[in-house]
Design a protein around this nucleic acid. Structure first.
Lengths: 198, 198
DNA sequence: CACACTTGCAACATTCACGATGCAAGTCGC
DNA sequence: GCGACTTGCATCGTGAATGTTGCAAGTGTG
């Protein structure tokens, strides 16, 4: 379902949103939760959920799609292609954290939906470009592996999100993430390998 | 099941191992896979799986417990309380990566089993002690948040594991992880906050 | 206000995974 | 080799979750 002959009535739209949010909460706690539990959490009858989403998969897909769009918007809002790299990095991190904190389940789900995958690929590219600019600006080591940098970045954001789930401030967390990404937790330069300047 | 009146016969033990490993492979690809699929992957009949593991939960619990023990052993093998911090950190990372690469599903599962939770708590403490020693040795910043350091460390290991799933070398990955943890991917010291020396 | 839309409720059909059992054939261990 | 253990196979029961349908009552919209 989810495609409309004509737009849903206002109350029906509210119902859809309520179901999506309830599904996030419920599946976040227990990924194997039944449609019944989701319906209950949303305050609607089980049949209503089936009316709005043809199948369980359709519901999860819709959640994933919704979260992916929020994610995309959060990154673009930081203007990562024009703002100075460090600022964009910080801004994007904070924005993304706000989304991930509210859509943990939907975001950590690897979707089979090609649309969703396309969005994530797009975001990855934006991120890659940003890191590239950061390196050119001397913010990253010249010999840094940008792919690993991106993945470390994602991993740190994901970890910071867990704090956020329990009432952390997105801006403070973003500072923590970016700081850690750039400088790690170590003290002086004493690399295990010889990556430090000769 | 899984507790024995007397020890299982040799062939039965092999069967148990085969089932555990098949379950890891199968559930790794699809967490919702049925007992049937697991049995097929193990090359045994479905009823045999039920003979060895009373229920699906019992099977997953057994996997989780097994993986947790391997994890614990991997950390202790690095002698994290006596070896010099940097060496222990590197060694433990490599050992843990080897385990996580083979038991991705079982390791990333938050268990309801108190025994498993105890093991993980124990490992967390060992890790905390190690990071403490690292800080005292001047390896970490004096004002570093050790809890965040530990979690960043876990997150980076987890990310590195994905490389390992596709044939990466555990030792090389460990170097990458420890290096990134200590120094990040940034170039010079230009902290966003004023954490750098005055 | 009138009409179309939306929802809750009750009932139903179906599918699927789980778990149990008995038995015959094969395998291990002493 | 003999006895105990283990497994495959065929079969059955059961419960839970999914998805559908019809209808009456309520609610938004023009």
């Amino acid at each position: 379902m989810e495609q409309q002959g004509r737009p849903l009535r206002a109350d029906a739209q509210r119902t859809v949103r309520a179901i999506l949010e309830a599904a996030e909460r419920t599946l976040g706690k227990n990924p194997a939760a039944s449609m019944e539990e989701i319906a209950e959490a949303a305050g609607v009858a089980r049949t209503t959920v089936h009316r709005r989403f043809a199948s369980r998969d359709a519901l999860v897909d819709a959640m994933t799609r919704w979260a992916a769009q929020q994610f995309h918007a959060a990154v673009l809002a930081a203007r990562p292609d024009s703002t100075p790299p460090l600022v964009a990095l910080y801004q994007a991190t904070a924005n993304v954290l706000r989304v991930k904190i509210g859509w943990e389940f939907a975001m950590s789900r690897s979707s089979s939906d090609p649309d969703v995958e396309r969005i994530h690929a797009e975001v990855r590219e934006v991120c890659a470009r940003l890191l590239n600019r950061a390196r050119d600006a001397g913010l990253l080591r010249a010999d840094a592996d940008l792919e690993w940098a991106r993945r470390s970045y994602y991993a740190l954001i994901h970890e910071a999100m867990r704090d956020g789930s329990e009432g952390g401030d997105a801006d403070a967390l973003a500072t923590l993430v970016v700081d850690t990404l750039l400088h790690g937790v170590g003290a002086g330069p004493s690399g295990l390998t010889g990556t430090v300047s000769p």
